[in-house]
Design a binder for these strands. Structure first.
Length: 787
DNA sequence: ATGCCTCGAGTTCA
DNA sequence: CTCGAGGCAT
């Protein structure tokens, strides 16, 4: 960089450099408007350092080279605040704000006073003292009376001016404000720390507070801190503006960063409007805030209003509902899910988080508890993050009672007392009770009746719980033998058990309408589809999508319930794990008899059909052989075997020497031999062969004509809400035209349909350059392509 | 082996 | 909605 006034005098040159560096800092950190490239900035800085090294007498305290203090101190000196640092009264409701404004109106005898409105930054309050325009001391708030001298650390914050701009500042000036860590910087810092094994900060607020309290200011300098000014402290020897808002403008002129979200407005309504607007913008702000602050703008009026105790009458903080709260762990219970998964749940002392009272929070799994070291009795931080579901963020270790013990997973199911087991490499512990565990059975029934499964309206989890607990229902099939009397009797026993007065008895007559409705919807549910039925069975790893695929490929329950796992693997997206799980389910006698009973009691599958034409193409002998997972017998080797011996039924009989003659490597042949010697493998082969042959017959008899659908092979994602139909309906129509409807957008997506208020999926699609249809386009397409 | 991309499963509260 | 993990392409 060339200087227009290149001076040789080191004193003058140093002064010029300082001025230019400070100007660059101001533009970059306060105005957010970088004027000179980083490299040039560095050059100026190095030149100044060189001059100061050569002429130590020039290294003045307010030099930008001194932003990082040289000597770490043992501890911070105390600083007494000349003017006490305030704390504000907090308000959480509109009503409290209206009361606040009313009180002011009465005391000042005016209506709709003017307020200065500001965000309430979630950082650390500090006070900065300037003498003759030079930053001389900075302190934390402390208890309001006395804080800690963190001057050296504050110097490292680039948005804090070391020298004031302009010339109309008072000789002695104290400015108060908030040190915070911008979210993006916080994320970036943590990412870097994670990669390099550094200290990861818990959140921006703690990051800011912790950084300022570093004894070694070079650590503070490495932390991305920033500052906003929002209030005056003690001021000597000068006339200041008459209003708070004008004062903030002065702060700006003097080089302090003042938030652009600061506004003025009149009356309670103006305050509340601001609260809502900032609340909506909150998540998209580059820094954390925990509310807004209203201050009477007229400084004389502020003085007239004065204080009550420690808080001013002229200002109030209107807080957002807290997103994080601390509470105590009362107990850690184990919940047993439909698949037997044992999920630990924290029972909490009830606490308000983001507007709702939270009493439970999931702890996900045993590993998570171990990671967090959560113990019964601990005080923990609970959060309702972007979504709704509360979670335990961390333990406040200082508040741990002395007698706590590390939490341990139970050894046995709390319900059926079967052993809890964990499969190799898995995170979840499961109850081994399977069919005999009442908890698992209950969950299975709830799943069976749920909307996306058999859709039995009115049969919710509470009712099912009672039905199971009182012995009316053991297996899902029992639902279909319940009569009106059973429901009435069940209700009576439940009321008796709970000691509640039966509301079903009115004027001596037992109310039965609810039971009649239930019987009706149970009856209604009997007419269903194969895919719903398969989903309803609750087979592990079989969700809606897999159920749909099974239904589409094989077409009939009679077939599916007898398929060995190697054949199940023929379906795309069904691999060894899922196939074995399905096989295992149908291998259990109890499950087969439950299915028989359901069918006997009238469950009927309206949409059963012949095997899919696609299945036929997958029934080659080589695919079949490869699907058996015989060690070393890869797809390629399987094909080789088939070309030599043709009929897979000969797998059991071809002697080893012939295998080798046919060109199979010796180890492959040996693996095959030892595989078929295991009786369970031999059985599997026999069973698979039989069904494979059946499938080939079935596939051969299906019609050859496979009509190509307009959206065949296209992957579609639906997002936002449609007006002419629900997303599910639209999805069904698109599927009927051959499309695959996926849940999330990726490179493989062909196009998305975006309805009203589409969110992140639309953004992602646009980012990936994926075609976007609006509802009109969809309707047009559907009209042009009747199913 | 490694890294997407999906699917499945579990979860809270009004 | 988010996490874990299965399936599959590379």
């Amino acid at each position: 960089m060339t200087s227009p006034t290149k001076t040789t005098n080191p004193t003058a040159r140093a002064a010029e450099l300082r001025q230019r560096i400070e100007e660059a800092n101001y533009r970059y950190h306060v105005l957010d408007d970088a004027q000179i490239p980083d490299a040039d900035y560095d050059k100026l800085m190095r030149e100044l350092e060189a001059i100061e090294a050569a002429h130590p007498e020039l290294a003045v305290a307010d030099s930008p080279t001194r932003r990082v203090g040289a000597t770490p101190s043992r501890e911070f000196a105390e600083v007494r605040h000349e003017l006490r640092m305030l704390s504000l009264a907090n308000a959480f409701s509109d009503e409290e704000i209206e009361d606040f404004v009313h009180r002011i109106e009465e005391r000042l005898d005016i209506t709709d006073p003017l307020f200065s409105l500001e965000p309430k930054f979630d950082g650390l309050a500090i006070s900065l003292r300037y003498e003759n325009g030079v930053f001389v001391q900075g302190a934390t708030r402390g208890d309001g009376e006395t804080g800690e001298d963190v001057t050296v650390n504050l110097r490292t914050i680039k948005s804090i001016p070391l020298r004031l701009r302009g010339d109309d500042w008072p000789a002695g000036l104290e400015v108060r404000g908030e040190v915070y860590m911008p979210r993006a910087e916080f994320e970036r810092y943590n990412e870097h720390a994670r990669e390099h094994g550094g200290k990861v900060l818990a959140n921006p607020r703690n990051g800011a507070a912790g950084s300022l309290r570093q004894l070694d200011s070079s650590i503070t300098a490495s932390r991305p801190l920033a500052f906003f000014a929002y209030a005056p402290g003690a001021v000597e020897d000068s006339a200041l503006p008459k209003t708070h808002s004008a004062l903030l403008q002065k702060f700006r002129d003097w080089g302090f960063p003042v938030s652009h979200l600061v506004e003025t407005a009149r009356g309670a309504q103006g305050c509340l409007d601001y609260y809502r607007r900032i609340g909506e913008a909150r998540d998209s702000l580059p820094f954390d805030i925990d509310g807004v602050v209203y201050k009477v703008d007229d400084l004389d009026a502020q003085r007239d209003l004065g204080f009550v105790g420690r808080t001013p009458r002229w200002a109030i903080a209107h807080k957002f509902p807290a997103q994080e709260q601390s509470t105590r762990i009362l107990a850690i219970d184990i919940n047993i899910g439909r698949t037997g998964a044992a999920t630990p749940i924290a029972r909490l002392e009830p606490v308000q988080v983001a507007g709702v009272v939270v009493t439970n929070a999931t702890l996900h799994n045993a590993d998570q508890i171990e990671r967090l070291d959560v113990r019964v009795g601990d005080t923990v931080i609970v959060r309702r993050a972007g979504d709704v579901i509360p979670e335990v963020v961390r333990v406040i270790e200082d508040q741990r009672p002395a007698d706590t013990v590390a939490w341990q997973m139970l050894k046995h199911c709390p319900i059926c007392h079967s052993e809890l087991v964990r499969e190799e490499g898995q995170v979840v512990w499961r109850c081994s009770g399977e069919l005999i565990c009442p908890a698992q059975r209950k969950e299975a029934v709830i799943h069976f009746a749920s909307r996306r499964a058999m859709d039995i309206e009115g049969l919710g989890s509470r009712l099912i719980e009672d039905l199971c607990d009182l012995g009316f229902v053991v297996s899902v099939a029992d639902l279909y033998k319940l009569g009106l009397d059973d429901f009435i009797e069940m209700k009576r026993r439940a009321d008796e058990r709970d000691g509640t007065t039966p509301e079903t008895v009115k004027a001596g007559k037992v109310a039965t309408k609810w039971a009649e409705n239930l019987i009706e919807s149970i009856e209604h549910s009997k007419q269903t589809t194969l895919e719903r039925f398969l989903f309803a069975l609750g087979i592990e790893h079989v969700g809606e999508s897999t159920a749909k695929a099974l239904s589409a490929w094989f077409g009939r329950l009679e077939l599916i319930r007898h398929l060995p796992w190697p054949l199940l693997k023929l379906v795309p997206d069904i691999g060894g794990e899922v196939a074995r799980s399905i096989d295992h389910f149908f291998a259990q006698e109890g499950n087969q008899s439950a299915i028989d009973e359901l069918l006997m009691r009238g469950v009927s599958l309206k949409d059963e059909h012949d095997v899919s034409p696609k299945l036929r193409q997958s029934l080659g002998a080589d695919r079949f052989l490869a699907s058996l997972e015989i060690p070393k017998l890869t797809e390629k080797r399987a094909a080789q075997w088939v070309s030599a011996f043709d009929d897979p039924s000969r797998v059991t009989s071809v002697p080893e020497h012939q295998l080798v003659t046919a060109g199979l490597p010796a180890d492959t042949a040996a693996a095959l031999i030892s595989w078929r010697e295991e009786t369970h493998n031999a059985d599997l082969l026999k069973r698979s062969l039989r069904i494979w042959n059946t499938l080939r017959e079935l596939a051969g008899s299906t019609s050859e004509t496979e009509q190509l659908l307009p959206l065949d092979g296209k992957t579609v994602v639906l997002t936002g809400s449609l007006s002419a139909m629900t997303r599910d309906e639209a999805g069904a129509k698109l599927e009927a035209l051959g499309a695959k409807v996926a849940g999330s957008v990726s490179k493989k997506t062909d196009f998305i349909v975006a309805g009203e208020a589409a969110g992140s999926k639309l953004e992602k699609a646009q980012a990936l350059g994926i075609e976007v249809w609006d509802e009109a386009r969809l309707l047009e397409f559907l009209a042009g392509n009747p199913a």
